[in-house]
Structures are given as C-alpha cells and as structure tokens.
Amino acid sequence: MFPPLRDELRGIEPYGAPQLSLEQAPVQLNVNENPYGPSPEAAADIARAVGAAAVSLNRYPDREFVELRSALAAYLDTSGGSGITPEMVWAANGSNEVMLQLLQAFGGPGRVALSFAPTYSMYPEYARDTMTEWVAGHRAEDFSLDLDAARRLVEERRPSVVLLPSPNNPTGTVLPPQAVTMLCEAAASYEPGGIVVVDEAYGEFRRAGTPSALELLPQHRNLVVTRTMSKAFALAGARLGYLAADPSICDAIRVVRLPYHLSAVTQATALAALRHAPELLGKVDDLRAERDATVAWLREQGLEVADSDANFALFGRFADRHAVWQGLVDRGVLIRETGPDGWLRVSIGTAEEMAAFKKALLDTIETTKEPA
C-alpha cells in the first residue's frame, strides 16, 4: 500500500484542535492562547530585532543560541528558579519540539515513557513517533495523583521518561512539590534510571503561593522543567519553548537536535520579547482573576469544575458533551472537546469573550436540556 507508511501510523488523523474562521466563531477559546497580544512598542521592538537579523540570513544562526539561553536563564531566575545558568537551559521550536527531543534522546525502542491520565494528548504521540512504549497510569477522581500508586507504577515499569504537566492539561491541576520529589526519587531508584519532566507550559498562571518545580532543580539531577513563551508571553505564533535541567541533560539533547534548529528570526524574536517580559506578562493577573471568576460562575450553574492553576477551566459533566460543544459553536463560541468523557475545556479570554461564552453556554444548556 502506497505510501510505505509505518504500519502503526496508518489511519491516524494528524493532531490538532478544530479550527474555524472568525466568521464561523468570533469567540475562540479552544487552544489556551493569551487573548492579549504584544503592545505596539513590543511589536515594534520585535520587528526591529527581526529586521536586524534579516540582513545576515545568508548565514546560519548561532546553533548554540548562547545569547538566548543566557536571557532565558535570567528570566527563570526571577520566575521560581535559583542559580540557573545558560548551560542548564535548552530551547526549541515550541515546547512540543523540546518534548520530542527529550523522547529522542531518552526514549526509543525497549524504553518506556509514562504519565497519568487524563493528561496532554500529545504525550503518547511523542512516544509513538520515537518508538517508545507508552504507559498511562490514572489520576484520582479530583485529578490529583495518588502518590503511592504513582510510585508503585514507576518502580514497576521503570520508565526512561516520566511526563508530568503542572498545571495539568486539560484539568489545570498542579503537582505539589512532594509529588515531584517522590517521583524523581522513584525514577532514580533503578538502573540506569529515568528523567522526570515537569511540563510548566502554564506555570506563570499558577495561583499565589503555588511553587514551581524550578525550585527543586538543585535537589534532583534527573528533574527537567519545561516552559513555553506561547501562553503567558502571548507569543504562540513565534514557537519558542525551553527547559531547565542539569547541563548533562542539555548536552544529551544536543546529540539529537537538527542542525541549526532554532532560526535567527526565532532567536531575535524571543530575545526582544524577553526584553519586554514585564509588559507581556502584565495581563497574567487579569487572566488569573478572570479564570477564578469563570470557575466560580460555572459552579454556581451547578456544573463540576476542576480546580485550575492554568489559563483554562475543565467543566462538566454532560451526558452529550458534543451537543453542548456544537451548541456553543452555533452561537459563535469555539471551546475544546477534550478530557474525560462528559467534560469540556474553555480557555480564558477577555472579559467580553467570557461574557459571550457564559451567555452561549446558558442558551445551549437550555436548548439541549442539559443540567446546569
């Protein structure tokens, strides 16, 4: 059968959230984007930086992106980290590529990648693409981790890579520090051991007092903390993800990275954005407040809502969630049909977008006779 695709890939649909035009759905709350774009000043600085990079695009970029790694290390030192050096930082085209590189370096045939469902739907695809066995444990009813069960599963399956989003996607649940420590210790208890990847793509949206796994890096050599500029930095279109870890882990990734994988334009864009970090992150508090208000409102309607430290909320439960999703689309609001059966996820938008979502949801529930 042509083309000669790998057997395990035949019939599989490519990953991707449903995309609709703004005419079809003027309110788009399905992919956890930051609704507030860069200011004219930040955009102008980014444009200047890209323009300066453009005059030397006949040359390959700095393949070690030293300046960017230094700037990211400085930012992480103000974002929950301590003593993070450029040698401890790696970056790629979105945290998706960072994760894939981790699986390329530490996964592979005969090795196991492990997480706990429900979790980010791309994780099993990274495992599949690198021919790594995928193992998924289960979360508790409130989407937290049963630490004893999690430890037993890690000790039994001896994964090379443990993937733990915190806040979790799609539930918004955070991992307490003791959970990260326990899993790092469990993954270090066998030979040759495994790495524990705490995916903090939504880390900047954590509620006050919720620690970052960055604080634990000095204690656990096998801990990797990943971040992205797509969410809090409102830079989804730039595709820049990064990690902090022991320098030996970064060196291992360098073995599998493609040559010059991070373009000069991407590096210039990210560096300019980091110069404007306080401004670009300035709407995070507003989005946190809007998230908390949305969670409270959904609960007032009699719906279940997972506690969220991200810029989205998972809510339910619906007998026919697709009918509710479609009802919202019919009213111009696009959210995500994801997570456990019966649940839906809404990204947090502007106050006006959330008002439109609430009205559309109430109208849909009334029409579909779903309980509220």
Rank of each mutant, 00 (worst) to 15 (best):
F2Y: 11
Y15W: 14
L20W: 10
P26M: 10
P38L: 07
S39A: 10
A44R: 13
D45W: 09
A54E: 15
V55G: 07
V55C: 10
S56I: 08
Y60L: 14
E64F: 11
L76T: 08
I84S: 00
I84K: 00
W90G: 13
N96C: 04
M99V: 08
L103K: 01
V112T: 15
V112I: 15
V112C: 10
T119D: 12
Y123L: 15
D129Q: 15
T132D: 04
E133G: 13
E141Y: 11
D146C: 07
D148S: 14
R152I: 04
E155K: 12
S166N: 07
G172I: 14
T181A: 14
E191T: 09
P192Y: 02
Y202N: 08
F205D: 05
G209L: 11
P218L: 14
N222G: 07
V224I: 14
K231Q: 06
F233W: 09
L240R: 02
L243E: 04
L243G: 06
A245Q: 00
R254C: 01
Y260R: 10
H261I: 10
V265D: 12
L274E: 05
H276D: 07
H276A: 09
H276Y: 05
P278E: 13
E290N: 04
A293S: 13
T294V: 13
L303D: 02
E304G: 04
V305F: 09
D307S: 08
S308L: 02
A313G: 04
H322N: 14
W325Q: 12
V346I: 13
I348D: 00
K358N: 06
D363T: 05
K369A: 13
P371T: 03
P371G: 15
